[in-house]
Design a protein around this nucleic acid. Structure first.
Lengths: 159, 159
DNA sequence: GGCCTGACTTGCGTATGCTGAAGTCAGCAC
DNA sequence: GTGCTGACTTCAGCATACGCAAGTCAGGCC
């Protein structure tokens, strides 16, 4: 059970999940669209207004995100209106909530304005603020030096 | 204690911590450099080789990251070598670990290769894998619909 | 004094992401 | 059929990020 950091040059970073995740959600506007989608936004013009990017950029980004299966483009019809399309979160998209939450926590701490955070996510049952924290599968909270990095099945070794 | 999602257009997303975080760590290579730094990499040429970006891009990115105080450029001297500089994580940089971990978790689940993940972070004490999860300050684990979004002190209302 | 190495810098060319202004298109309301 | 609206598309034009190739520069080693 050797720690991979001890011999960092014996393995490569091809097949890295962080890199593949960044290929999909790596742009600023994609993350901000996810922020809005997780707050409940679904319609094109609401995304444009609330995220603050132009229509052409939004159309391109939404198209990418539907192709990446973060969002689904679904027809709907309000009474007396014609059929429109809305962008609904998929499971894959909704699973980005820990990423967005971790980013928001970090921004609140390290890129704060002097006014403090604009919004706070709280636990519905008890009202306490929510944070993204590290836990092992046994339920232990992780503190800074407690981590080992070990090989997974997809590790590519050199030599 | 109204939920802000109920009237999304009564407030704006200026002063958003997610957006400010993305302004600092929003590019693919910045995240991959953080991944390497968190694995212990410190020297310029190691970053170039392990992250897989060219020297000019790496020099520019490291300069930005030092300016953003994610890394510190520190002189050091190995015996019999001349003085060099290494890039050490600051507290601000190290605090991005939950973000990187959440991204890695998501990539492992939703952007996996058929070989499985290349590396796994485990708890040193018990060996169980580590994940970024959502918890409230009272220690409750958060499940999907359990979240309220409430106003913070920095919220900017419309009208 | 010349070589070597690590850490860059300079100088291209290309790709992507964005903006702003204007145009398109479908279909309900009148 | 004309207007209106939401949801785009098209068309410049710009800034950033990146790649590759080559050049620079400092200082210990021989």
């Amino acid at each position: 059970m050797e720690d991979l950091r001890d011999d960092r040059d014996s393995w490569t970073s091809e097949n890295c999940s962080v890199a593949r995740a960044m290929d999909i959600v790596g742009s600023r506007s994609t993350v901000l669209i996810m922020r809005e989608a997780l707050l409940g936004t679904r319609r094109f013009d609401d995304f444009v207004r609330r995220v603050g990017v132009g229509e052409p950029a939004m159309a391109a980004r939404l198209k990418d995100m539907v192709a990446a299966e973060l969002l689904e483009r679904i027809p709907y019809r309000e009474p007396g209106q014609r059929t429109r399309h809305e962008y609904q979160l998929t499971r894959k998209g909704r699973d980005l909530l820990p990423v967005i939450t971790a980013l928001r926590n970090w921004g609140d701490t390290w890129a704060a304005t002097d006014t403090g955070p604009s919004v706070v996510a709280t636990h519905h049952d008890c009202g306490e603020p929510i944070r993204a924290v590290l836990r092992c599968a046994a339920g232990h909270e992780i503190t800074d030096g407690d981590i080992d990095i070990i090989a997974g099945p997809g590790l590519i070794r050199r030599d």
